[in-house]
Design a protein around this nucleic acid. Sequence first.
DNA 1: TTGAAAGCGCTAACAT
DNA 2: ATGTTAGCGCTTTCAA
Lengths: 333, 333
Amino acid sequence: MRDVALHAGVSPKTVSNVMNGYPYIREATRLKVLASIEALGYQLNLSARNLKSGRTGIIGLAVPRLNLPYFAELADAVIGAAEEHGLTVMIEQTGAVRERELGALSRPRGHLVDGLLFSPLGLGPDDADYLRISTPMVLLGERIFHGPADHVMIDNVNGTRAATQHLLQLGRRRIAVIGTHPGEVVGTAAIRYGAHLSALAEAGVKPVHKLAVEAGPWHRSNGADAMEKLLASGAKFDAVLGLNDTLALGAIRVLTKHGFRIPDDVAVAGFDDIDEASFSTPTLTTVDPGRAQIATAAVELLVERMNGDDSDHRELVIPFELHRRESTIGSNS
Amino acid sequence: MRDVALHAGVSPKTVSNVMNGYPYIREATRLKVLASIEALGYQLNLSARNLKSGRTGIIGLAVPRLNLPYFAELADAVIGAAEEHGLTVMIEQTGAVRERELGALSRPRGHLVDGLLFSPLGLGPDDADYLRISTPMVLLGERIFHGPADHVMIDNVNGTRAATQHLLQLGRRRIAVIGTHPGEVVGTAAIRYGAHLSALAEAGVKPVHKLAVEAGPWHRSNGADAMEKLLASGAKFDAVLGLNDTLALGAIRVLTKHGFRIPDDVAVAGFDDIDEASFSTPTLTTVDPGRAQIATAAVELLVERMNGDDSDHRELVIPFELHRRESTIGSNS
DNA sequence: TTGAAAGCGCTAACAT
DNA sequence: ATGTTAGCGCTTTCAA
């Protein structure tokens, strides 16, 4: 920068002013400086600026894994939303492991991120205190904690209830659930399963507990394994609720392999509305949690916090939408 | 850091030494300093370190979009590989747009990344000069350029040839191709299509040009649209080669909708071996480009460059593998 | 094995 | 509208 200043015959501060779009510069000076910058191939050193300003223009995004389509599509949306605000995104994969999630919180990249978007999956309610960090943060996804942080939430409860009600309306009464996490009380699995049970109860349908099948990480393979196990158990069912889309798709795979017709023999619904759900065979009935809105709302909220807003913590619930597709209502052709 | 030094009764430099694992410190001093760090909740300011050392511990990853499963899974692998080297990944989405790709090159985040992994899709051979940048860089994916940069390549040619040969071995002779980019000479689409043609020629099969269908971005939806167009044209075919998996899956969707049986009426193959290919209905025959190996090799190469290795540019071709699945060979049940 | 001094490149605050 | 001064928090000499 000094070199540029010399080359242009101005002070370093003027160069800095030009770089930052400071308005009160004579146009002639500005052009002169710009020319020198060009001539010398000068590039601003962000580390230096950050050191001085305490800001990096980077926000962190902590998600389980990018090989989970929901989170990949969420990351895509977040990166896009951040760009609108001139921010870059650093992604940290936590693997939904508690220790790694705590790591992402405790050491927000050594002052290298101005804010953090955090999708907690491994944390429990006892960990709420860890969320009191000095870096601005917005939680994404589940209503796990009431408390010390902003939260942009999926409407898990009403979304899942809508899916279950849809299956009930189709006359299905024996609904298998894929992807429960027994023992978990907070967390997506517990919330969605609870909402499912409440919808059943409301309709006066008794739940069949052996139709609820556990699945660890919500990959397709685990959905497939869970369905194999369910079939092996000999239990009868006329519908399947995958607690997310990949589980449902894995289950569909196995059902098809075993000769079940979908939706005639078994109707299947999921949750997330990942891109694939519109193109799978059959297309998948699922709950769209409003990914794009989640991303823009979360980034907006975070930016406000980064700008010093220290008003009370807010919880935002994004409206969901149920997409009825072939896996429950068949093809219309 | 000064505060920590005061608290521990040592000089800032000693604290720095402790932070950096400098070996020649008395254990007692080390523990004292560690205690003070803990007591004061001290966190190293990376911006400051970077300013001094010129290193950030961050590498950039420039890919088209994370909503393309291949790139999401690649990013996942890269983040994992980078972690092994203590590096963090900043993802830049270029949208496969030339201008944005040039942007990622010209302004590698203002010295904020120590190196760059770059998946060029929008650049042409005329842009080779732009690849001569001072930041260490490794190109990922396609053999677009011979030249000024390290390159970890998918074996597009042999992979595609294997897929085509597989279709030919099944007795298919009228193979539709989904996803061509007419006018493109370098780039994935052109390379794979060219390889397909060469495999046909070698087998003495005459290509049917109207069976090659264009598709812009390689999304499922574009694969579906392309297949609709192909069917509307009335052309007859007994196989489909999707130039990537999502195109193939989109095409399968449409074929199924129109009542074609796969693979009996039409065999379908793709390229990428995304996770979904193992779980779709039918499962998808596809070419596995060795994503994990690509990621680890690329990060390794990049780390060497970042450590000052300035030997000649290297080109690494990762071996592929053809996975034969239901979409071409049917179910074995 | 530890400390002192200097400076990385930038910008905030204050001149002018 | 532009320049001066000082210092962000760390590490790299070099000395002790």
